[in-house]
């Protein structure tokens, strides 16, 4: 059912969780690609749909994880709100392909 191409890999046991609970089709891939602003051609969509189905099925095993009480050890890190030196406008714009009058130039916000 699953073909390993790495001769040495013997991790099949970890894949026993693979049940096809999730099912990802081309429409789902196109939807997230739109949310993530990544253009995909039809070939990419088909390949990703197949791979995502397999990967998300593997992630489904997270259902077995018990709710865990975690003690938070986090504290807020604050600093005074003081003006400090930073990049000059020229430095900040140096890596942009298009600039105009000292500003970044982007596409129209629609």
């Amino acid at each position: 059912m699953y073909l390993w191409s790495i001769e040495t890999l013997t991790l099949r046991a970890r894949l026993l969780h693979c049940m096809s609970e999730s099912s990802v089709d081309g429409e789902a891939v196109k939807h997230v690609a739109e949310l993530a602003r990544i253009e995909l051609d039809d070939e990419d969509v088909a390949e990703f749909a197949e791979q995502f189905d397999e990967i998300l099925s593997y992630f489904d095993a997270l259902d077995e994880v018990p709710a865990v009480d975690s003690e938070t050890e986090l504290v807020n890190v604050m600093r005074p709100d003081e003006v400090e030196s930073s990049l000059s406008q020229v430095e900040a714009l140096a890596n942009a392909e298009e600039t105009e009058d000292g500003y970044f130039k982007g596409p129209t916000v629609s």
């Binding site: 602003r37 900040a92 942009a96 596409p107 129209t108 629609s110």
Partner: peptide, 28 residues
């Protein structure tokens, strides 16, 4: 990686047309 939209750095998707399409093209 949402920051890579081709405007401040990276491959630009051009400044013509709709911004969603421009960003999507740059990221593609």
């Amino acid at each position: 990686l949402a920051r890579f939209d081709g405007v401040r750095y990276g491959t630009s998707g051009g400044s013509d047309g709709n911004w969603n399409e421009s960003f999507a093209a740059a990221r593609e």
